[in-house]
């Protein structure tokens, strides 16, 4: 296992400690890493510094309150925090509701398999590396798309993202979840 894989698993265990023990030290570490990123993301998306600061604090507080909703067999912690930040952006900057799909969640008695969690975290790491290795121009285009600087029709030509393996991994997690929900 590479060191960075360990990093992602470490964030997962921080989330578990926040969820189960309301562990403030774990939350402080998560905050130190992700709060500046969330603030930067929101400023790139058009928020001024004070609004981005306020929203970043709200996003991190949501991570605490909704720790039980995080499913490490389906996403990395960075991905999960991204979705919370994105929803806040739509709410505050675009002043719209965000329709979400019907919920799929593990029941109180069930947990995802640890091997599935490891595999998902490694897959996330590899996706991050693959994106980092893209040509500069293409990587910038992807960033622009997520900061909201490109419309969906402008990203139509956006291909070459290596998403096949992570999609299969998520598909597998969804099947296990469907099975557990029966």
């Amino acid at each position: 296992m590479q060191e960075s894989d360990g990093k992602r698993m470490q964030w997962v265990s921080h989330m578990v400690r926040i969820r189960d023990d309301r562990d403030q030290a774990a939350f402080a570490a998560l905050f130190a890493h992700f709060a500046p990123r969330v603030k930067g993301f929101l400023m790139k998306s058009g928020a001024d510094a004070s609004l981005a600061e306020e929203c970043a604090q709200e996003v991190m507080a949501t991570c605490w309150h909704k720790a039980h909703m995080f499913d490490p067999a389906r996403a990395s912690v960075a991905t999960w925090i991204f979705t919370i930040a994105r929803n806040r952006k739509i709410d505050v900057l675009r002043k719209q509701r965000r329709p979400e799909p019907e919920d799929l969640a593990w029941g109180p008695e069930e947990e995802p398999d640890q091997a599935d969690v490891m595999a998902m975290q490694q897959e996330s790491e590899q996706l991050g590396q693959a994106i980092a290795e893209l040509p500069e121009a293409q990587r910038e285009l992807i960033q622009k798309a997520y900061f909201g600087d490109l419309s969906h029709s402008e990203i139509a030509a956006q291909t070459g993202l290596p998403l096949g393996t992570i999609k299969s991994r998520i598909r597998l997690a969804l099947e296990r979840l469907r099975h557990a929900m029966k």
């Binding site: 960075a78 930040a85 799909p101």
Partner: peptide, 25 residues
């Protein structure tokens, strides 16, 4: 759903590696 969540993962990677990841709080 799996395809959307893959694109969420791209968002996670963008958040992790964004140029402004050290924005001062």
């Amino acid at each position: 759903r799996a395809r959307v969540e893959s694109y969420d993962a791209v968002g996670g990677a963008v958040l992790e590696e964004a140029p402004d990841h050290d924005m001062a709080l």
